[in-house]
Write a protein that binds this DNA or RNA. Sequence first.
DNA 1: TTGTATGCGTTATCAA
DNA 2: TTGATAACGCATACAA
Lengths: 338, 338
Amino acid sequence: MYVRATAKMVADRAGVSPTTVSRVLNGKVEAISEMTADRVREAAEALDYRPNSLAVSLRKGSTATIGLIIPDIADAYFHQIARAVEDAARPEGFAVILCNTDREPERELFYLDTLREQQVAGVVFAGGGVNDDEHLRGRDWAGANVVLIGPHNLELPSIGVDNRAASIAAVHHLSEQGCTRIACIGGQPKWAIHQVRLEGLRQGLADIGEELDPELLWLGDFGLESGYDSVDAAMENGREFDGIVAFNDNAALGAIKALRKHGRSIPGDVAVIGFDDLPIATVVEPQLSSISFPRREFGETAARLIIQMARHEDVEAPGLFPFELKARASSLVAGVPA
Amino acid sequence: MYVRATAKMVADRAGVSPTTVSRVLNGKVEAISEMTADRVREAAEALDYRPNSLAVSLRKGSTATIGLIIPDIADAYFHQIARAVEDAARPEGFAVILCNTDREPERELFYLDTLREQQVAGVVFAGGGVNDDEHLRGRDWAGANVVLIGPHNLELPSIGVDNRAASIAAVHHLSEQGCTRIACIGGQPKWAIHQVRLEGLRQGLADIGEELDPELLWLGDFGLESGYDSVDAAMENGREFDGIVAFNDNAALGAIKALRKHGRSIPGDVAVIGFDDLPIATVVEPQLSSISFPRREFGETAARLIIQMARHEDVEAPGLFPFELKARASSLVAGVPA
DNA sequence: TTGTATGCGTTATCAA
DNA sequence: TTGATAACGCATACAA
């Protein structure tokens, strides 16, 4: 049976007190004789001593752990954020706890509680904004060190982009390509992300003298099947449209699949643009136009903020990140410029 | 400032000792008067008391946490496993710590150490099998509760599939489709996953009276670009082949992209089959044939094994999972059956 | 320059 | 049926 070495064992071996061991290994006090320090380090080495992080955390009142709450790690949008969070946390000695909520409010609450029990240094909360965040309002967030990624209706530090402007840009782009009957594949009305993008969409349409035909607003769950079903149903019902703004790439991909099934050419008959700019966007045929967000920076920044908070350092203001419209074959009616 | 309630605070409020609080809330002893128990529960409720899991773990010597070590959460193959691990852990009260290694041996070691420091209940180690696992041999695994997913050269409980047979099946499939010059997009020679799949490939070729042309064995890093570059280079060099077995879907997708660039039709000129059966496989055009693994079961089973070990329960033998060859348009030369 | 004593919050042992 | 005490491993205030 494997037994971990403790500070006391190191102390005994080095012929000093556990206090001294702690001091040497943490470099707390400069006033330690080199000889003693060497003996301690030697003993620690020999015993392969590692401080029990549980004990350290209990003593210090906080762990070197970041909770990451996302809807679904299996969603390409979030795993890039997750990766970035972990990459930023690792060199700082922080671990990342993975929490998938499927956007279920109870699960969000469950994890918020669980993570607090675990005394995490902070929580990165991405992709929430569910149900107007009712379930999260009025919570006592004191000392919780939460950073949000994406639109929420909460008074907490958050990083994100101007989704409204992004949505407007998408509509203008399709308009420039000659689209006049623009459809929208959204999420759920209660999702903040849906609300703000829809608002932008309506504004964009207004800019070009159009408005959203209620029959061309299709709600879904941001899944590929959901996008497919929306378009499939619309075609079955004889809806007319020449452009689609999908509020995420998964839905856009599903839409393309359905359009193809119904013999529509893309972008000739229907131009399509999504949100997220997932890696697949450049793999599929035609390549998918999309609004791109700096997901890695989202994750890195969020992690960095948490760590700064945990260390009681001055915390930089997150601010708004830029988006980029990647025009590709799926929406370039005149063809892709060489 | 938010202050957590402690067992002592609950005890004071209920007019009992912390010991009693612990007993009531953990249901340890039946011999507790209902009245006392009620008072304790009431006080706990009122104070929103949650046991400090750090203290509990320190006392008990183990946390309710599972370490998940994978090459890259941004890889579609692993995030499904990750999701399954988390789904299996959550209802049992276990949290999951995410660790990305990029298959770097030092990082694998780093995380193994870190996780041990954190007293995790166990470690799910997926996608390793790097460098003949030299760096992991001779380690003291006692009490580490490790479960491996995928091929490794280590004497530890592992779950996986018969990759050799899967590879053979892939070759036989292409052969049935009329392919005679079969190329291979592999990983790195030191990866166990590469070794075993390559062995199967050679066997499959032998079965049909062929053998692997060294010029048709292309090594890479399982990335999309890597698959693209391999095929692109091969075409530039005038290599002749009518079938490709890619050891993962990412590489297969890259290969298809390169084939298309060079004007080759799929599967007419070149039939392609991959491994992993990623969700994208059915989204791209043509749909990608692939060897499918029950990734969710991998993750669920691994998590369950860890939890059983942590609870000192009898541990089921993991065993071998079945694979399935999904024949789709990218390899069905005669077209997809209706 | 180093050691002793104390406490972080919990649970297990023993005694009452 | 309940409580006092000790211990998990560490870091800190204080003493020497």
